[in-house]
Simulated scan of single mutants.
Amino acid sequence: MISTTANSIFQRAIEDYHVHDAIDHPISNPYPSDSLEHLLYLKCWIDTVQWHMEDVVRNPEIDPKEGLYWKRRIDKQNQVRTDTVEYIDSYYLQKFADVKPLADAKINTESPAWAIDRLSILALKIYHMRLETLRTDVDQAHIDACREKLDVLLEQQKDLSQSIDELLEDIAAGRKYMKVYKQMKMYNDPNLNPVLYGAKK
């Protein structure tokens, strides 16, 4: 089951990041560069770095210039995240290239990689919510509320994991088929964002 592998890799990436807990600490991906595992680890590392960037930029005392710096870094990071999701979908498009869809095959609401993207983010939510349940500087009400939220996140992880596994099984059997759309984000493209191409004039 891919979800078991993915969840394990996501947990490893998150824990590896928090050894140093530094946004600019270089990644040390332990998986072969041509493997799906490599992409999964990279995906979660990118998400983890971006998670902490989002924390920094939400500091109410942040200097506006520094806030803009972080906002632009987040935009770049989000583009890298999107590109990595598309690499994962490319892996599955190649993997299932020889599968002939059944006559009544249906398309899914999202591609396998975008579902895996949600699973990676969910792993981060679980990690950080679990930390909240271990705090000693808050009252019991906070701990109890976070434990309830953690239970919901864990249930969501279980359900999403099952859905991803079933989706991939359906694609492999021809019951569903992949149709991938590039994200075509316009705000980072100097040829598509009117503010950016207008600045050239």
Rank of each mutant, 00 (worst) to 15 (best):
P30S: 05
V49M: 00
K65N: 09
C44W: 02
V19A: 11
S35F: 09
Y31F: 14
V57F: 02
E15D: 10
I27Q: 08
L68F: 09
D21Y: 00
N59K: 06
D47R: 01
L40E: 04
I14R: 04
Q50G: 03
D34F: 14
S35E: 11
S33W: 01
V57W: 04
L40H: 03
I62S: 04
F10E: 09
T48W: 05
E37M: 14
V49F: 00
G67A: 13
I9F: 13
L39H: 05
D34R: 08
L36Q: 05
V49A: 00
E37L: 10
I27N: 12
H38Q: 05
I62Y: 06
I62C: 03
Y41Q: 03
V19C: 02
H38E: 06
V19L: 14
D63Q: 02
A13H: 05
D47I: 00
D21E: 10
R12F: 15
E54L: 13
Q50M: 11
T48K: 05
V49P: 00
Y17A: 08
H25E: 12
P60G: 13
D16S: 05
P26G: 04
K43Q: 15
L36F: 10
C44N: 13
I14V: 13
H18F: 12
L36N: 02
D34S: 14
S35L: 09
G67Q: 13
A13E: 03
K43R: 09
Y17S: 11
P26D: 04
R58T: 06
S28M: 10
E61T: 06
N59T: 02
L42G: 03
D47L: 08
I62N: 04
P64G: 08
D55Y: 02
V49E: 02
D34W: 15
K65Q: 08
V56E: 10
Q50V: 09
K43T: 02
R12N: 14
R12W: 13
N7M: 11
Y41F: 15
P32I: 05
E15I: 14
W51A: 04
F10N: 14
Q11M: 12
E54C: 07
D63E: 03
S35H: 09
M53C: 01
D55L: 11
S8H: 15
Y41A: 05
W51K: 05
H18C: 14
A22G: 05
D47F: 01
